[in-house]
Design a protein around this nucleic acid. Sequence first.
DNA 1: TTCTTTATAATACAAACGTACCATAAAACG
DNA 2: CGTTTTATGGTACGTTTGTATTATAAAGAA
Lengths: 198, 198
Amino acid sequence: MPKKVDHDARRRQMTDAVCRITLRSGLGSATFRAVAAEAGVSVRLVQHYFGTKQRLLEYTQRHVGERSTARLMGWIEATDGSPRAVLEAFLKSFIPTDEESRVAGLMYLALYTEGVMANAGKGTVRRTESQMMESAVLEQLNRGPLSSGVDPQAEALLLTALMPGLGQYVMNETMTADSAFATIDYHLNRLFAAPYGP
Amino acid sequence: MPKKVDHDARRRQMTDAVCRITLRSGLGSATFRAVAAEAGVSVRLVQHYFGTKQRLLEYTQRHVGERSTARLMGWIEATDGSPRAVLEAFLKSFIPTDEESRVAGLMYLALYTEGVMANAGKGTVRRTESQMMESAVLEQLNRGPLSSGVDPQAEALLLTALMPGLGQYVMNETMTADSAFATIDYHLNRLFAAPYGP
DNA sequence: TTCTTTATAATACAAACGTACCATAAAACG
DNA sequence: CGTTTTATGGTACGTTTGTATTATAAAGAA
């Protein structure tokens, strides 16, 4: 048998190439040939590890998602565990602050758009991610003391819709990451009751 | 000289074809040949009126934008002119409710993504639209009596980032248009002070 | 009518794409 | 050692793309 190789690492090497190319010149430029050249391997090898292009993109999406999740977990574990702090970390993880999170955001936008477009008329869309996000937000909201007049359910929906937009505005430099953070802080301040009463 | 023809109407006929195709099977499927077939004309004619594909997409983006603007103006003129009502109409115009606005939203997403990707590393992005939106929102917020603790500037930023997200969630059927409307109403209620005091 | 300009058409072409096919080297296992 | 399995490479094929080329019909101007 041939030299034993870490398939997952090899795949990651190529999906990383997909990310770099997409970041540089768009998802449409991530062809088999370009990916192979960027990863420093032959075209045949990309075929060997992914077979079809659709699977190449599926793996890319998964890898990007895994990194973002790991990133989020790190942020959350660095908090004191209070509902306000956990929620803040969760929300702020959607704001790109360095190259890695910028790549993740751009890849998500590109792949999400592709998916929405492909299933535009078919009624087959992924709503699991946003639903998971919504329930995670709701869970934290239900823990903490909220200001009067705050509807946790409505706020969870609102925050779930707000975060991608904030992230994208930071990505295309409409606003800085700091002002996105400030916006999150501002809104959370209006949501949570002060420790000594509303 | 040949028969006189309304160039703009002819172009619109073809950009409409681009929209229908994009809605059905993605922007990538909007090739010259597909657009020509969908519009019922020859490929050469599409070339004649747009020359290059980039210009075809530019015109499509402009036409979609014009329709959305007209749609928004109609909504606003149907209000009583109060800051709360104008802002509500403005925000709700981002929620797709019929086929036309659905198309507009999808086209915007597709073309916006294409644009973000193309200029990802170049620092050349269009931030004019969202800045115009932000100042329009701010203008209305500054008119009306706001609840205590509301920062108009921060809220304008927040609403500007929220609307595309809400619109997209309605588009991919994560939520219904009615719950998006309810979310907007809920948030505006927390923003504006009641007529008889906070 | 005749001419000239423009709308429209059919098709050709080079490039790029995803994928299939054929070949080779090397390493684990008997 | 030899065999077999697998990673890897080079390349060819058919399709589709955007665009260029050439040609024709028709309608206003003279």
